[in-house]
Write a protein that binds this DNA or RNA. Structure first.
Lengths: 200, 200
DNA sequence: CGCGGGTTTGATGATGCTCAAGCCCGGTGG
DNA sequence: CCACCGGGCTTGAGCATCATCAAACCCGCG
């Protein structure tokens, strides 16, 4: 069997097992619905205006999803690294043009699933369906805690919480992108960092 | 004259039909899993620290979900009115104590579903399962657009977008609650309103 | 009538943005 | 090999937005 796609599915398996009980056989039946794909740094997985065709599992690398504000500035909706999922759900389900973009911050290896294969996956076993629902619920939860922070916490606290929550991310993602994610300008984040390092 | 529980299911049916195709019979089979309940204004459906037992459909009235910041201030995560769903998903699925509160802003009529009944509902027909997944996906989408606003849009724009998005809500919900939802103080929202009315 | 919650208004100050310049560093071409 | 360029990060000064503190107001209700 192929080497690279084999390791890609290993990570998926780890993640699936974290959330549901599944037999080797049911897992294997499901894997046939995924389409492996490599994406180069700066390449798009989705451009706003196109219909989102994929729900993707990230086996390696780093993606970001962002939308543009009226002045053309980027608003980073979320990051994704190994073991996470990424898609524009609304467009994927409605078949309408997406309002967000998804591109790669690093060379990445992905496991894609289109609408059909997703349906197929669900017929491959109830565990897969539960796993998918689980994933949706986790995304939901992540969004809510982020909203809570954006509503109530000042920028510095949002940053420290980001560091705690995603310790792997901060040395892989350029500062100005993290700033956008946190809802501050790069200048402000730079000052926050300085402040924190001096205080410690 | 109809019994109140009958009209409660009518609204549910409207909403289900908006999202999936379902036969009268399959719909009816599903309804048996819901537990009708009335909630008085200011009563809790969920208190932080308890495990969230319910996923609830709002047949009438208005709920809010909120968490407390370190100083004890309320951060309103979301509102829900007739035709919407409300729960603390994380607690509901994990069986761990909830970090959020849910209470009623008006006397409300609800259709509750616990973990067991939800499983039952899914066995009652694939349409129900699709409907539930749909609901999760919509919540997700709503969270993302809200995050995008909180990141990039100034308070006044967030308010006008709130008005467009939820025109029914603004005359039912006290100003200071909307302020919390938008991530500003009541004073600021009051000034924004004044500003807007003078400008028009 | 007076009390209390919610809203408004004002004054002041902190937080974070804008504009602008300088720095660091890796990449390119002379 | 170095000079130059450009992108990303830092730093500074002035300014806008929004929070805080405080007081007044409005109105439904006991």
């Amino acid at each position: 069997m192929q080497t690279s796609s084999h390791t890609m599915f290993d990570l998926l398996k780890t993640d699936v097992l974290k959330h549901v009980e599944i037999s080797d056989e049911e897992f294997h039946r499901g894997t046939t619905f995924f389409i492996p794909k490599k994406l180069r740094r700066r390449q798009y997985l989705l451009q706003a205006g196109d219909v989102c065709q994929w729900v993707t599992f990230i086996a390696k690398g780093c993606l970001r999803q962002y939308s543009l504000d009226p002045e053309g500035g980027e608003r980073i909706l979320r990051f994704g690294i190994e073991g996470w999922w990424m898609t524009d759900l609304e467009s994927f389900r409605s078949r309408l043009p997406a309002s967000s973009n998804i591109d790669a911050l690093e060379d990445s290896e992905l496991l894609l699933m289109n609408n059909e294969s997703l349906g197929g996956l669900f017929t491959a076993g109830a565990a897969w369906e539960r796993y998918y629902r689980n994933m949706l619920e986790k995304e939901n939860q992540a969004s809510l805690t982020r909203i809570s922070d954006l509503i109530g916490a000042p920028a510095e606290e949002r940053y420290t919480r980001f560091l705690q929550m995603y310790p792997d991310l901060f040395n892989r993602i350029p500062l100005h992108q993290i700033a956008s994610y946190l809802g501050v300008t790069p200048q402000t984040l730079s000052r926050i960092r300085k402040e924190l390092s001096q205080r410690k």
